[in-house]
Design a protein around this nucleic acid. Structure first.
Lengths: 204, 204, 204, 204
DNA sequence: CATGAATGAGTGTTCATTCAT
DNA sequence: AATGAATGAACACTCATTCAT
């Protein structure tokens, strides 16, 4: 109706939408079948286009994984940094970090699975060095929280901190592999119960 | 030197040894790189033979995964069945199951990783239906223990049993991905600390 | 401003200009990278448009090569025919043909390179049969000149005429691959030195 | 018949033979159709195997081109270095270099064509930097010979040495595109006539 | 038992071409 | 006229598998 030949806004949206669709399909497939075991043709089919068309939107299969992961990690670290910067006590920081992790699972489930299952493989490529860097920062963050908590007498002193860190880390991330956004328990409730289990145990 | 052309005993041993070598190499590689991302040539090379020679010992790549997994599961379930059959109370059964799981990680680490990471992928093939069956039995076993524990007032009643089951399951199996037989903590000690964390929590 | 929606003259000019731009870009790229190794997107980009837009102006990549080559050959043969028709003696005809060839290199360098390097490949397609025909005529023309020269005692009789023909042919056309319109020597001077070398040799 | 399972000599020969067959087929196709326009399947078919089988013998298409070119250049430069090292006068050196070049065309025709037609394209890859290096050395060698000849009064002083160099270079290498080992004139005779034409010209 | 050469289906990627806007 | 999204055939290359020796 407008004299303008094309609505650049509309075009931009549609292009971005298509990118998002493709990326969503890729993330789901990479997460469920594994990155290596997923073919670009499967991704394309899931996005309703043909294999070759993928390359209009993305440079490579790698680029898709890259975009999926970096988008997720950027958001995750913004959340973590907020928590860390809030100056809470050890137990409260612990609770908030777990909650933030479950929020990220809720919003980026396939990306979390990719992050957890494919980092080792992908990080052989320098392009994905930031994944290792993220793991390193994550470890540092948790060890700091745990050590402070032990020194403050809030956390038990008879546990190996490194072991507790791995326990927490795995416990949280692996949840991505069974979590469904539309499952019976909302993400917040799952986080609450995980916090209870890890802090207080399951004994009555 | 003997008039017999070959010593069948010796051949048998050597054949079994070679099978074991190949299987060990395959398990290590499947676990660290992923089943799909590991090539049979890599397996062969790690076993000191050439790619084509693998097919004297095994029908296919799949057969190797099959043997690795079924051997592991047979042993695992023998252990679990022993624990379940011992008629212990809920908390003690809990402890023993965790301990048995860590024993299996100690003895079959690569197999555990395969079991945990590749079941979904492999089980698309009917040949690996037993993997799903194992997961089902595992779930049933734990839910029974947990429900009994809750009813006996030993475990907290304010947690979703299904969630606790998944928490325990993931927490234990994922440990295979970082566990080293020759690491600083022996498997028994790791099991003990995991039991403490899960039963009593990490709060002081 | 005129009541006419568009000025057809202006459109025609602009259309022809755009065709020429595209063709120039295509010729340069085909010449420097090779026809097969040049993508239509590269051609389009060099002409300042997008890949798809090329097809408003040309049927196909092939059509561009066709137009480049046939334009060049039409002009080349007009020049050769003029020389041949002038009724000069063998040595003078020789000089004029070389000079005409260098003029064509000066004006159609990329087309000459295409002609020289891609004829075999393109001529598998019947559409480009005229390239082979041109080579044939070229050969006939030179052999006639050389034979006449030998019979007239102007050219040496101890050389294989077919060999001399190829020597001249290659010597001249390959010069297109290093010639620059704005190089230190003008085309006319290069032609003169080539004529000296071929007729008199490089010995003092 | 022999008790040895395999004759390692025979195996070695057969393997080398197959490599040579493949390389020969590749060289012929690369030379006639161009490197980019030749598919590995065409090479394989010409060698009597399937596309995938090529990769048992060679890493990549590139590796084939590399081996073809480096083998040729090694031999060529051994010959050139011998000529240059012989301490002959300018005219005699000139003759011997042309003769050596035609010998290389006789023995490595497809490699020469590759060298002449694909250097620019291949040399974008650092792996093929040695091609540019060879062109540079070639240029230096000829300019030295020509300059010495001019200074010694053996070669004409009224020609641009750079132009003479290109004239010689192209004249010789392009001959590879029509030369046939089993053609009417042997390589030595062609070389002789080329030497006559370039040194003395074609005028009687 | 092991080799090594070959197979052929399948993978990520490229690219000339089409066409609705 | 030009765009940009899509197509689909083709490409270089990989890899589980086969088999004569």
């Amino acid at each position: 109706m407008s004299p303008r030949r094309r609505d650049p806004e509309a075009t931009a949206v549609s292009r971005a939408q298509r990118r998002a669709e493709v990326l969503g399909a890729a993330a789901d497939l990479f997460a469920s079948r594994g990155y290596a075991a997923t073919t670009v043709r499967e991704v394309a089919e899931a996005a309703g286009i043909l294999g070759g068309s993928l390359y209009y939107h993305f440079d490579s299969k790698e680029s898709m994984a890259d975009e999926i992961l970096s988008t997720f990690l950027t958001e995750l670290w913004a959340d973590y940094d907020r928590v860390i910067g809030a100056g809470l006590g050890p137990a409260e920081t612990f609770r908030e970090l777990i909650a933030a992790s479950f929020r990220s699972i809720d919003r980026h489930r396939p990306a979390v699975m990719l992050y957890q299952k494919e980092t080792r493989h992908l990080a052989e490529n320098p392009r994905f060095a930031y994944l290792l860097e993220s793991w390193r920062k994550f470890r540092e963050m948790w060890l700091t929280v745990l050590d402070k908590g032990v020194m403050a007498g809030v956390f038990r002193a008879d546990l190996d901190t490194g072991l507790v860190y791995r326990f927490i880390r795995d416990t949280v991330w692996v949840a991505a592999s069974w979590y469904r956004h539309d499952g019976p328990l909302p993400a917040g409730e799952i986080a609450r119960q995980y916090i209870t289990m890890t802090l207080d145990g399951i004994l009555a």
